[in-house]
Design a protein around this nucleic acid. Structure first.
Lengths: 169, 169
DNA sequence: TATTGTTATACTCTATAACTATA
DNA sequence: TATAGTTATAGAGTATAACAATA
């Protein structure tokens, strides 16, 4: 289903999809530059995820953030040394390490959100009002997009019993 | 002017700015993961810039992409070795190297735009139609945001005669 | 035997510092 | 003396491979 890779949601969508993808991709640098540089973007993403969803396994975080397990291990170690997260052994399965946001980590997330907003506000202030309105109206969709993307990857994380569901073609 | 860092476009905008900044930042991973991984995102940005604006000085590209001159030197060298760009000596000032997209580079940009669109289409296809519409409506604003950001940095690039305009406070 | 997480090691991207060549 | 670009070297972030602990 939908193997053509083209959205079947109406005429003209394809061109706009291409355009939107391009715009979002080009925007990467802008968003990135207008963010504090104290920690990596993957670290921010990890902390955000923990803030939204509560404690997670290290493996989950690796999949969600799109990096390998060893990479997430070292990332978590540095976040732990910074006091932003803590490792907790899962009593139910002692192989599992649950990563949880500390008080300090939660504060960091809130503070960063505010700081980033301020940095961004200067740029947004230069946009005509109707474009600002369009951006604000797009917030749910942009957020939904991220959720869909995460949801798409998560099922591969805890196959529970069923594994090797199907080879990715 | 606007020194408070808060947008003065109406009540309630600040919260939305914070939210928008957060969403765009979180979206980074999503956009990034749904893009081909053959070359770096900075390389893509560089090629996109050249495609939009024509040949540029190496220094300009470094500033626009937000990396240092030495980093851009090595990036351009690898793009040149891949046959995507070429270095041209500027006859007017022989210190200057102009970077230009080759035929092959232009083709790459077009092809990549298509490929990324296809990868993205699968995700977009899962959004409700009204959210897709909101995203499409936000395209000009998103693109404008990038332009504003570039424009903000470019003046620092070619001071022509006037230099040391003022120490960045 | 399979799964969770870690350690060891290497590669890519970017940075800073020092250099060459033009102006 | 100042600017455009390069070369040399180092650091951060990520990858793959091999390992330890638990199921």
């Amino acid at each position: 289903m939908t193997n053509a890779g083209t959205a079947a949601a109406g005429p003209g969508l394809d061109d706009r999809t291409v355009e939107l993808a391009g715009v979002l991709q080009n925007l990467y640098g802008t968003v990135f530059r207008h963010a504090p540089r104290d920690i990596s973007l993957t670290s921010v993403g990890t902390l955000s995820t923990l803030d939204r969803t509560g404690p997670r396994r290290l493996t989950d975080l690796a999949v969600i953030e799109g990096i390998t397990q060893p990479s997430m291990t070292s990332l978590v170690t540095s976040l732990e040394q910074a006091g932003l997260v803590e490792r907790r052994k899962d009593p139910a399965d002692r192989r599992v390490v649950l990563i949880a946001l500390t008080e300090s980590g939660a504060t960091y997330v809130r503070e960063r959100r505010r700081t980033t907003g301020e940095l961004f506000a200067r740029l947004l202030g230069k946009l005509p009002p109707d474009e600002v309105a369009a951006l604000v109206a797009a917030i749910p969709a942009l957020d939904h997009l991220r959720e869909l993307d995460n949801a798409e990857r998560e099922p591969q994380v805890r196959p529970a019993t069923a594994r090797g569901v199907s080879a990715a073609s």
